[in-house]
Computed example of a mutant assay.
Amino acid sequence: MTTPLLTSNPSSVRSPLGESTHLFVFLEIFSCEGGIQSYVQDVLRAYEQAAAASSNPQAAEVFLLRDGVSCENPFDHLNNPYLQFRYFKSNSPWWGRLTLMGVLLGRLLRQRPASVICGHVKLAPLIRLLCKPLGIPYRVMTYGKEVWQPLPGSARQALQDAQELWTISRHSRDRACESNHLDPEQFKLLPCVVNGDIFSPGPKPAYLLERYHLQDARVLMTVARLWSGDIYKGVDVTLRALPKILHHHPDVKYLIIGRGDDRPRLEQLAQELGVSEQVVFAGFVPTEELPDHYRVADAYVMPSQEGFGIVYLEAMASGIPVLSGQGDGSADPLQDGKLGWQVAHRDPEAVAQACIEMLEGKDARVDGPWLRQETLAQFGEGAIAQRLQRLMGFQ
């Protein structure tokens, strides 16, 4: 049995700011890729910014149940005064959890932090078990589908007893309340963010135009997992809309970025619809190339059902107009349709009409500089750091 490694920086277990004021507890954020993991890293960056801007900066410890010391951690450097990390990965999952529980209880008894931030509903019963008898307030971070269905009684009780529940969108809040009898007043919105320095407007990169044979084409683009369990992303709906779009704009091509087991079905659908020559399946794209892929697009199309949809922020920060689904968390990044087109997410006719309007370019929602300005004002990293500063009680 492997004993969990509790810190990667034994020489800096204590922050220069003194005892940790806040504790974050997560499942994992570095050992695997995903939307939650990316979002959590954005929250931690916002915490650093908020603490640095505060007249009374407060340090935090970050406990990671499934991450090990070998994980690449961009925050874990010796001169980081605001975040210190503890790793509990073990060959035996129950041993790692037991060790985390013991170390966390010791911290709570000795330090009595101002609050504990629980990073996933799966950890919430444990956090409640330790914090509630000690009178230490705790918050629970929620994201989307993990709280949209009725939860086991212990998890629901842990959410109900939390000081606050943080979530990414109004839609996620409303779904969680409906399914688990939660008080909407408990919820605080901490939405996704976009880095405007990385996702920014620019000319269409020549190397991508050549790679995908997009010269002289107007490009619709989707970035999504092509998994058979994720057909709600709406790639098939956009394919069905393509014949009508091509009737009005014959120079259009549809660039699909992503990989998964649903790709053969989607390729077959494009063949059946007679649009396979206008569809490019790009497969996996490295993170560093993603900003250039947005720049090659004329419109971003994903008639999905999202908890939020950070891809919409990335497109709009790049000056690209967007189409989303309707009645989901995308209402927040699109600001209730102010910044983009919201359509019924399984309706090819509605998708086609919206795409035609976007490509005609007569609507104010295609104004790239304005889209970028409005997006960064609400969802730039600085704006979210200020929101977190208020939530954490920094002065």
Rank of each mutant, 00 (worst) to 15 (best):
V194Y: 04
K188N: 09
K188Y: 03
G202E: 01
A176R: 14
S200A: 12
C177T: 15
C192F: 00
P184V: 06
F187L: 03
S154H: 09
F199I: 04
Q163W: 02
A162T: 08
L159F: 11
R175I: 01
A162L: 10
R173Y: 07
G153E: 06
D174Q: 15
P191V: 05
H171R: 11
Q163T: 06
E164T: 12
R170F: 12
A155H: 11
W166S: 03
D197C: 05
D174A: 13
S172P: 07
K188R: 14
D161S: 14
T167C: 11
G202R: 01
W166H: 05
E178R: 06
H181Q: 14
S172A: 13
G153Q: 08
S179V: 02
D197P: 00
A176H: 13
P184I: 04
I168M: 02
A176E: 09
E178H: 04
R173A: 13
E164L: 11
T167M: 03
A158K: 10
D161T: 10
H181M: 08
Q157I: 02
A176N: 11
A158M: 08
E164H: 12
H181A: 15
D183K: 02
V194C: 01
R173K: 15
E178N: 08
P201L: 04
R173T: 07
P203W: 10
G196W: 05
I198P: 15
S169N: 10
H171L: 06
R156G: 05
N180V: 10
D183L: 02
I198S: 14
A162V: 09
G153M: 05
H181V: 12
P201W: 02
I198F: 13
L190R: 08
P201Q: 04
N195V: 07
A158N: 08
F187R: 03
P203F: 12
L189T: 11
W166M: 05
I198E: 15
H181T: 14
V193M: 03
C192K: 00
E178V: 02
E185T: 15
L159Q: 04
S179C: 07
A176P: 15
C177M: 13
N180D: 08
R170M: 12
A158V: 06
S154A: 13
